[in-house]
Protein backbone atom coordinates (compact mmCIF):
# COMPACT_ATOMS: atom_id res chain seq x y z
CA UNK A 1 0.00 0.00 0.00
CA UNK A 2 1.32 3.38 -1.04
CA UNK A 3 1.96 5.62 1.94
CA UNK A 4 1.79 8.79 -0.12
CA UNK A 5 0.38 9.33 -3.58
CA UNK A 6 -0.30 12.59 -5.40
CA UNK A 7 -2.66 12.61 -8.37
CA UNK A 8 -3.40 15.43 -10.81
CA UNK A 9 -2.91 18.23 -8.32
CA UNK A 10 -3.43 21.78 -9.60
CA UNK A 11 -3.39 24.99 -7.62
CA UNK A 12 -3.73 28.60 -8.71
CA UNK A 13 -3.38 31.87 -6.89
CA UNK A 14 -5.48 34.28 -8.92
CA UNK A 15 -4.12 34.07 -12.44
CA UNK A 16 -0.88 32.41 -11.33
CA UNK A 17 -0.81 28.66 -11.75
CA UNK A 18 1.42 27.48 -8.90
CA UNK A 19 1.00 23.77 -9.66
CA UNK A 20 -0.15 22.21 -12.92
CA UNK A 21 -1.37 18.63 -12.92
CA UNK A 22 1.25 17.26 -10.55
CA UNK A 23 1.58 13.50 -10.18
CA UNK A 24 4.01 11.92 -7.73
CA UNK A 25 4.42 8.49 -6.18
CA UNK A 26 6.31 7.96 -2.98
CA UNK A 27 6.69 4.26 -3.40
CA UNK A 28 8.68 3.34 -0.33
CA UNK A 29 10.95 4.39 2.47
CA UNK A 30 13.32 6.54 0.49
CA UNK A 31 14.99 9.91 0.72
CA UNK A 32 13.44 12.16 -1.90
CA UNK A 33 15.13 15.39 -2.96
CA UNK A 34 12.82 18.15 -4.15
CA UNK A 35 14.61 20.60 -6.42
CA UNK A 36 13.32 23.70 -8.15
CA UNK A 37 14.00 27.37 -8.53
CA UNK A 38 12.45 29.92 -6.21
CA UNK A 39 8.76 30.15 -7.04
CA UNK A 40 8.70 26.81 -8.90
CA UNK A 41 5.99 25.47 -6.58
CA UNK A 42 7.96 23.42 -4.02
CA UNK A 43 6.44 25.00 -0.94
CA UNK A 44 2.92 25.02 -2.42
CA UNK A 45 3.28 21.29 -3.03
CA UNK A 46 4.52 20.62 0.51
CA UNK A 47 1.77 22.79 1.98
CA UNK A 48 -0.83 20.73 0.12
CA UNK A 49 0.67 17.43 1.32
CA UNK A 50 0.51 18.71 4.88
CA UNK A 51 -3.09 19.98 4.46
CA UNK A 52 -2.10 23.56 5.33
CA UNK A 53 -3.74 24.52 2.04
CA UNK A 54 -5.92 22.59 -0.36
CA UNK A 55 -5.52 21.94 -4.07
CA UNK A 56 -8.06 23.26 -6.59
CA UNK A 57 -8.27 19.82 -8.17
CA UNK A 58 -6.72 16.39 -7.91
CA UNK A 59 -6.07 14.49 -4.72
CA UNK A 60 -3.46 13.40 -2.23
CA UNK A 61 -3.81 9.96 -0.70
CA UNK A 62 -2.16 8.62 2.40
CA UNK A 63 -2.57 4.85 2.71
CA UNK A 64 -5.33 5.10 0.09
CA UNK A 65 -7.29 7.65 2.12
CA UNK A 66 -7.99 11.01 0.49
CA UNK A 67 -6.48 13.55 2.86
CA UNK A 68 -8.83 16.32 1.72
CA UNK A 69 -11.68 14.27 3.17
CA UNK A 70 -9.72 13.06 6.19
CA UNK A 71 -6.72 15.26 7.04
CA UNK A 72 -6.15 13.07 10.08
CA UNK A 73 -5.00 10.24 7.80
CA UNK A 74 -1.85 12.13 6.97
CA UNK A 75 -1.42 14.23 10.09
CA UNK A 76 -0.78 11.20 12.31
CA UNK A 77 1.94 10.03 9.89
CA UNK A 78 3.55 13.35 9.14
CA UNK A 79 6.13 15.75 10.48
CA UNK A 80 6.44 18.83 8.28
CA UNK A 81 9.17 21.35 9.04
CA UNK A 82 8.36 24.30 6.78
CA UNK A 83 10.82 26.92 5.65
CA UNK A 84 9.16 29.79 7.49
CA UNK A 85 9.09 29.64 11.25
CA UNK A 86 5.87 28.62 12.82
CA UNK A 87 6.99 28.19 16.41
CA UNK A 88 5.60 30.69 18.95
CA UNK A 89 8.24 33.42 19.03
CA UNK A 90 8.34 34.02 22.77
CA UNK A 91 8.65 30.32 23.61
CA UNK A 92 11.89 29.00 24.99
CA UNK A 93 13.63 26.24 23.04
CA UNK A 94 12.91 23.68 25.77
CA UNK A 95 9.20 24.50 25.64
CA UNK A 96 9.12 24.06 21.89
CA UNK A 97 10.82 20.69 22.29
CA UNK A 98 8.26 19.70 24.94
CA UNK A 99 5.45 20.78 22.63
CA UNK A 100 6.93 18.69 19.83
CA UNK A 101 7.25 15.64 22.04
CA UNK A 102 3.52 15.86 22.67
CA UNK A 103 2.70 16.42 19.00
CA UNK A 104 4.38 13.43 17.36
CA UNK A 105 3.38 9.89 18.42
CA UNK A 106 6.79 8.33 17.58
CA UNK A 107 8.84 11.16 19.09
CA UNK A 108 12.16 9.92 20.44
CA UNK A 109 13.54 11.95 23.33
CA UNK A 110 16.95 10.24 23.12
CA UNK A 111 17.39 11.42 19.53
CA UNK A 112 16.40 14.93 20.56
CA UNK A 113 18.97 14.94 23.37
CA UNK A 114 21.66 13.58 21.09
CA UNK A 115 21.08 16.37 18.58
CA UNK A 116 20.75 19.11 21.21
CA UNK A 117 24.19 18.06 22.41
CA UNK A 118 25.68 17.65 18.94
CA UNK A 119 24.57 21.10 17.80
CA UNK A 120 25.23 22.68 21.21
CA UNK A 121 21.75 24.14 21.53
CA UNK A 122 21.00 26.34 24.53
CA UNK A 123 17.53 25.13 25.49
CA UNK A 124 16.90 28.11 27.76
CA UNK A 125 17.10 30.61 24.93
CA UNK A 126 13.97 32.07 23.44
CA UNK A 127 13.27 30.88 19.89
CA UNK A 128 13.12 34.48 18.65
CA UNK A 129 16.66 35.06 19.91
CA UNK A 130 18.11 32.17 17.89
CA UNK A 131 20.19 32.93 14.81
CA UNK A 132 18.85 31.93 11.38
CA UNK A 133 21.11 28.88 11.47
CA UNK A 134 19.89 27.76 14.90
CA UNK A 135 16.28 28.21 13.85
CA UNK A 136 17.02 25.74 11.04
CA UNK A 137 18.77 23.41 13.48
CA UNK A 138 15.65 23.38 15.69
CA UNK A 139 13.65 22.09 12.75
CA UNK A 140 16.26 19.44 12.04
CA UNK A 141 16.15 18.28 15.68
CA UNK A 142 12.37 18.03 15.77
CA UNK A 143 12.05 16.48 12.31
CA UNK A 144 14.64 13.81 13.05
CA UNK A 145 13.32 13.08 16.56
CA UNK A 146 9.69 12.89 15.34
CA UNK A 147 10.29 9.54 13.63
CA UNK A 148 7.18 10.35 11.61
CA UNK A 149 6.73 7.84 8.74
CA UNK A 150 6.66 10.85 6.40
CA UNK A 151 9.18 13.50 7.45
CA UNK A 152 9.36 16.63 5.32
CA UNK A 153 12.04 19.31 5.51
CA UNK A 154 11.64 22.48 3.46
CA UNK A 155 15.10 24.06 3.14
CA UNK A 156 16.51 22.47 6.31
CA UNK A 157 20.06 23.75 5.87
CA UNK A 158 19.23 27.40 5.23
CA UNK A 159 21.66 29.56 7.19
CA UNK A 160 23.76 26.60 8.34
CA UNK A 161 27.54 26.65 8.01
CA UNK A 162 29.35 23.86 6.12
CA UNK A 163 30.11 21.92 9.33
CA UNK A 164 26.50 21.93 10.53
CA UNK A 165 25.21 20.98 7.07
CA UNK A 166 27.59 18.02 7.02
CA UNK A 167 26.46 17.02 10.52
CA UNK A 168 22.84 17.03 9.35
CA UNK A 169 23.64 14.90 6.28
CA UNK A 170 25.51 12.39 8.43
CA UNK A 171 22.75 12.13 11.02
CA UNK A 172 20.18 11.72 8.26
CA UNK A 173 22.05 8.86 6.56
CA UNK A 174 22.99 7.16 9.82
CA UNK A 175 19.44 7.19 11.12
CA UNK A 176 17.81 6.37 7.78
CA UNK A 177 19.97 3.24 7.51
CA UNK A 178 18.67 1.97 10.84
CA UNK A 179 15.14 3.40 10.81
CA UNK A 180 13.98 3.87 7.22
CA UNK A 181 11.09 6.26 6.58
CA UNK A 182 9.99 8.63 3.82
CA UNK A 183 12.03 11.81 3.85
CA UNK A 184 11.13 14.61 1.47
CA UNK A 185 13.79 17.31 1.50
CA UNK A 186 13.74 20.47 -0.56
CA UNK A 187 17.06 22.19 -0.94
CA UNK A 188 19.01 24.60 -3.11
CA UNK A 189 22.28 22.91 -2.08
CA UNK A 190 22.00 20.36 -4.85
CA UNK A 191 25.61 19.45 -5.49
CA UNK A 192 26.64 18.74 -1.92
CA UNK A 193 23.48 16.81 -1.05
CA UNK A 194 22.91 14.89 -4.31
CA UNK A 195 24.41 11.63 -3.04
CA UNK A 196 21.92 11.49 -0.15
CA UNK A 197 18.86 10.93 -2.29
CA UNK A 198 17.21 7.80 -3.62
CA UNK A 199 15.22 9.93 -6.01
CA UNK A 200 15.36 13.49 -7.27
CA UNK A 201 12.13 15.30 -8.04
CA UNK A 202 12.66 18.34 -10.25
CA UNK A 203 9.91 20.91 -10.43
CA UNK A 204 9.79 23.71 -12.98
CA UNK A 205 7.07 26.35 -13.22
CA UNK A 206 4.60 24.19 -11.31
CA UNK A 207 5.26 21.00 -13.23
CA UNK A 208 7.25 17.92 -12.32
CA UNK A 209 9.80 17.53 -15.08
CA UNK A 210 11.79 14.63 -13.59
CA UNK A 211 11.34 11.99 -10.90
CA UNK A 212 14.17 9.46 -10.96
CA UNK A 213 17.40 8.50 -9.25
CA UNK A 214 20.24 11.02 -9.37
CA UNK A 215 22.34 8.33 -11.02
CA UNK A 216 19.93 7.78 -13.89
CA UNK A 217 19.45 11.55 -14.30
CA UNK A 218 23.18 11.92 -14.75
CA UNK A 219 23.35 8.98 -17.14
CA UNK A 220 20.90 10.72 -19.42
CA UNK A 221 22.97 13.74 -20.46
CA UNK A 222 26.55 14.51 -21.37
CA UNK A 223 28.86 17.19 -22.73
CA UNK A 224 30.39 16.98 -26.18
CA UNK A 225 33.15 19.41 -26.99
CA UNK A 226 35.60 20.00 -29.79
CA UNK A 227 35.83 21.90 -33.06
CA UNK A 228 32.46 23.38 -33.94
CA UNK A 229 31.91 21.43 -37.18
CA UNK A 230 32.86 18.11 -35.55
CA UNK A 231 30.50 18.77 -32.64
CA UNK A 232 27.67 19.72 -35.02
CA UNK A 233 28.23 16.57 -37.05
CA UNK A 234 28.02 14.43 -33.94
CA UNK A 235 25.15 16.20 -32.23
CA UNK A 236 22.73 16.29 -35.16
CA UNK A 237 21.45 12.89 -34.04
CA UNK A 238 20.84 14.06 -30.48
CA UNK A 239 18.56 16.47 -28.68
CA UNK A 240 20.75 19.43 -27.74
CA UNK A 241 19.96 21.10 -24.40
CA UNK A 242 22.44 23.94 -24.58
CA UNK A 243 25.29 25.31 -26.65
CA UNK A 244 28.40 27.22 -25.75
CA UNK A 245 30.91 28.68 -28.20
CA UNK A 246 34.41 29.68 -27.24
CA UNK A 247 37.24 30.49 -29.64
CA UNK A 248 36.08 28.16 -32.40
CA UNK A 249 35.52 25.39 -29.84
CA UNK A 250 31.99 24.32 -29.19
CA UNK A 251 30.48 22.55 -26.20
CA UNK A 252 26.96 21.19 -26.26
CA UNK A 253 24.90 19.32 -23.69
CA UNK A 254 23.01 16.47 -25.34
CA UNK A 255 20.44 13.98 -24.16
CA UNK A 256 21.60 10.37 -24.25
CA UNK A 257 23.63 7.75 -22.44
CA UNK A 258 27.35 8.50 -22.69
CA UNK A 259 28.37 4.90 -22.01
CA UNK A 260 26.54 3.70 -25.14
CA UNK A 261 28.27 6.00 -27.64
CA UNK A 262 31.25 5.18 -29.77
CA UNK A 263 34.20 7.44 -28.98
CA UNK A 264 35.01 9.86 -31.80
CA UNK A 265 38.54 11.16 -32.24
CA UNK A 266 38.88 14.94 -31.79
CA UNK A 267 35.78 15.07 -29.58
CA UNK A 268 35.73 15.04 -25.81
CA UNK A 269 32.84 13.55 -23.90
CA UNK A 270 32.20 14.17 -20.23
CA UNK A 271 29.56 13.88 -17.54
CA UNK A 272 27.64 16.81 -16.11
CA UNK A 273 27.53 17.49 -12.41
CA UNK A 274 24.02 17.35 -10.96
CA UNK A 275 24.09 21.10 -10.34
CA UNK A 276 24.95 21.85 -13.98
CA UNK A 277 22.31 19.42 -15.15
CA UNK A 278 19.75 21.13 -12.93
CA UNK A 279 20.67 24.52 -14.37
CA UNK A 280 20.30 23.18 -17.91
CA UNK A 281 16.95 21.58 -17.10
CA UNK A 282 15.27 24.43 -15.26
CA UNK A 283 17.22 27.47 -16.44
CA UNK A 284 16.61 29.60 -19.49
CA UNK A 285 17.53 27.93 -22.76
CA UNK A 286 21.03 28.69 -24.04
CA UNK A 287 21.67 31.13 -21.23
CA UNK A 288 25.41 30.75 -21.69
CA UNK A 289 25.25 32.44 -25.09
CA UNK A 290 24.56 35.64 -23.22
CA UNK A 291 27.92 35.55 -21.46
Amino acid sequence: MMLLEIKNISKSYGTIEALKDVNLNFSGNKIYGLFGRNGAGKTTLLNIISTRIFADSGNVKCKNIDITQQPKAIMENLCYMPEENYFPKDYKVKNILKLSQNSYPNYNKAMEEKLVKLFKINVNQKFSQLSRGYQSIMKIVIGMASYAPITIFDEPVLGLDAVARDQFYRILIEDFGMNPRIFIISTHFIEESADLFDEAIIIKEGQIIRQKSVESLLENNFYVSGKAEKVDEFSQNYKVLSTQNFHGMKTVVVEGDMSSIKQVPELTFSKLTIQKLFIHLVGEQNNEELL
Partner: peptide, 14 residues
Amino acid sequence: TNQLAVAYVINPAT
Protein backbone atom coordinates in the same frame (compact mmCIF):
# COMPACT_ATOMS: atom_id res chain seq x y z
CA THR B 1 26.03 -1.13 3.29
CA ASN B 2 25.04 1.14 6.16
CA GLN B 3 28.64 1.57 7.33
CA LEU B 4 29.68 2.55 3.80
CA ALA B 5 26.71 4.90 3.50
CA VAL B 6 27.63 6.67 6.73
CA ALA B 7 31.36 6.77 5.94
CA TYR B 8 30.82 8.42 2.56
CA VAL B 9 27.55 10.19 3.47
CA ILE B 10 25.68 8.60 0.59
CA ASN B 11 22.33 6.93 0.20
CA PRO B 12 22.42 3.31 1.46
CA ALA B 13 20.84 2.09 -1.79
CA THR B 14 23.80 3.49 -3.72
